[in-house]
Design a binder for these strands. Structure first.
Lengths: 99, 99
DNA sequence: CGTGTAAGGAATTCTGACACG
DNA sequence: CGTGTAAGGAATTCTGACACG
């Protein structure tokens, strides 16, 4: 039950047009953030597929960009958060759906 | 929190190709079940969009079809379940705000 | 650096119809 | 009844590039 609900959040099934609507970001911006390694969609025959978790991530990125934080700084903050979560022993939640 | 997770399940963001992969049903079958009023995707400029709940629904439909249950019978069972759930929901709402 | 845009191509989806049965 | 398929068109997505700065 919890596993199933989790899978809804992490399953990569949403194409970029919908992600754009959900986040308010342009497709150009979404692709650029991928180029800057802030987001990692799957690919299905070349077509990008995102999860709801990705959508949330993009919303956080959007907030920080509006504050003027450059992508490189956002990336640093992200890797730092990952590190902290791993220290807390939550690496399971993070990696379980990654591969 | 619970609300957000619910939205993952019911938000219509998945296009038919992915739904086909997720359910193992052909696009033809998925469209036909819509024609028979077993499933109700949203439309975005003519393009069908499904939720994870829809995907689950389709899997149940697939199971019943494999058992040889005709679509019309499946539809009857569905409306019956809806009716039961509404009664339960009303009772919940009733008791929740009663005391 | 971050984002917009036009360009050409590839992959997706849609509908209505014919087929089988 | 339920599903496959070919057909033609419309909408989506992709990449690499030029622009501005």
């Amino acid at each position: 039950m919890t596993n199933k609900d989790d899978s809804y959040k992490f399953k990569k099934v949403i194409s970029i047009g919908i992600v754009s609507e959900l986040t308010g970001l342009s497709q150009r911006q979404i692709r650029y953030y991928e180029e800057r390694k802030l987001i990692f969609p799957d690919r299905s025959k070349g077509i990008r597929k995102y999860s709801f978790a990705d959508v949330e991530q993009l919303m956080e990125i959007a907030d920080k960009r509006e504050e003027g934080v450059p992508t490189q700084e956002i990336r640093r903050e992200m890797t730092k958060e990952i590190r902290e979560k791993m220290l807390k022993g939550q690496m399971n939640a993070h990696f379980r759906f990654r591969s």
